[in-house]
Design a protein around this nucleic acid. Sequence first.
DNA 1: CTGTTAGCGCGTTCAG
DNA 2: CTGAACGCGCTAACAG
Lengths: 336, 336
Amino acid sequence: MAGRVTIAQVAEEAGVSAMTVSNVISGKPGASDETRRRVLEVAAKLGYRPNQAARNLKTGRSGLVGLIALDLTNQYGLEILRGVADELAGAEQELLVNASYHDAGREKDRIEFLAGGLVDGLLLIAPVLEDETIELLRRRKLPCVVIDPRRLDVPLPRITVDNYHGMRQGTQHLIDLGHTRIAYLRGGEDLESTSIRFRGFQDAMRLAGLEVAEELVATCDFTYASGFRTAGRLISEHRPTALVAGADLLALGAIDAARSCGLTVPNDFSFVGFDDLPQAAQSFPGLTTVRQPLHDMGQKAALALLSLIEGQKLLMEHMELGTELIIRNSTAAPPA
Amino acid sequence: MAGRVTIAQVAEEAGVSAMTVSNVISGKPGASDETRRRVLEVAAKLGYRPNQAARNLKTGRSGLVGLIALDLTNQYGLEILRGVADELAGAEQELLVNASYHDAGREKDRIEFLAGGLVDGLLLIAPVLEDETIELLRRRKLPCVVIDPRRLDVPLPRITVDNYHGMRQGTQHLIDLGHTRIAYLRGGEDLESTSIRFRGFQDAMRLAGLEVAEELVATCDFTYASGFRTAGRLISEHRPTALVAGADLLALGAIDAARSCGLTVPNDFSFVGFDDLPQAAQSFPGLTTVRQPLHDMGQKAALALLSLIEGQKLLMEHMELGTELIIRNSTAAPPA
DNA sequence: CTGTTAGCGCGTTCAG
DNA sequence: CTGAACGCGCTAACAG
């Protein structure tokens, strides 16, 4: 119940038809400059604001894009979200953010709800995407782009990063510094990217003629606490000189674990993360990490979704973005 | 163009009128159990989903609540956001999140846009709120609740925390531990809460018979980097034994600054923050801090907004929530 | 360049 | 308890 003034009132006051007002307001052609000026003037005077609901009903569009993130507080998703928001700011679409809280049921619920007509398109960040949910999306014909899917083969337009080469490069950096006993912290096992990153690590090691000691590899959740605990065990029991983590949060937890063991970073121990979250730069020492272009992923995903919404065909169903090694101060040569 | 099926089709298939279908779907009385059952069955079979746009047009509601945060990546706002989201999950309202990026112009733009009919109500986190914007909100009669306003006297329903006693308690904790040379890091000067917190610090000091040395007080932005820089100077030039920060982010930066000066925390130096962001617990050592009930603030704000949307009068225009000192491991007695 | 006609899909009168 | 008609405010299509 925001704008009481209707298009009809403006039309009457300006002495034109409602159609003309509509055209002027939406910036369509087909209205002389003089008419346009008068309509705009009257609209301003009356304080006319188009009624979104009526417009939506007529056009069959809501002007809303849905985004389903895992969790509203993880920086990984939020960096992507920022990219999305930046891209959408140009288009006339607002962003409706939802979280699945890592729960497949809730994810399906939210998708079903949003796909029920609330949004014009959907962006999914690292979703579980059960087959049934995919089927739902296809049946509804809802434009949808997946960012960083858990399984690479989801039959939907998707954006991923080059996890393999990123991790290989990060590992190589430690090898180049002279490390040989390098530990590895795997992220969540339900993501295909976890295996791919690990393969990058393994290959880098193998190609350097180094052994991947089984006791130096451990798996944890994507949390600081999990990284702290798991790395603490790894470090105190097996004494590697460096550690590569499948995510920045894990690396940050691992660094604090090393500290709590009395080690100093990077003199006694080196760490490499993966993601380049804001925290990676805002920590002491700065974290050397493999950068995922999160903001860019968000932008590209939003752009692709917008063209899907406009009814255009996508140039590619799958887009893979590159990674980049960011060297900060958490890595150095191993102690002598 | 999500659900093709209309209420009319369901009505025909079920052999009743549209009216009845509408009543059944919206859970209104006035339909026999038998009819209700059949309608529901047919609706499910046909895959009927009510068209939001049509419903909105008719009811004059959008089912959307707008939230304007400062920045999509700061944890402070996100904790509040989580509270809001949790409360809204129960009501049938979706959340439309926007950011002002600390820009008054953009803030006004966004408010004006959302208030243009897109949302049923608005939640504002620490907004600038120029007079003109407040005027706009009043004119449009848009339900609105402000969380943590920059000026305490905004003429809108608002939720704040007890900054004064919180900070007094945090400071007292250091005094009790035996600290006397305590530095203070002020947050952004455009917030009234910055002065209030400082007054809490001053009073705690004064009441303990301690001097607030001018050179031990400095002002910075609400960022880690600013805390790092400013505290670094304070610590190296004036050698206090403890520091109180007007925000956790500042304290976290300050701790790293101390570390980069070769000090260990808390043995050489103690730190107290304010906020209790997730990072405060997820750092090493854990940060002793004054907890703001951010999640609760979000919930309470959402609840108040919902009742405003329902057209009910608010019990109180201003609600102030308490704070709580959370003692972790960043504080200890001063070095001997 | 402008006006007319006809709904979009729903909820809300009223009668029955 | 149910049905028929109307209209919310806007815009697509066409006519003028």
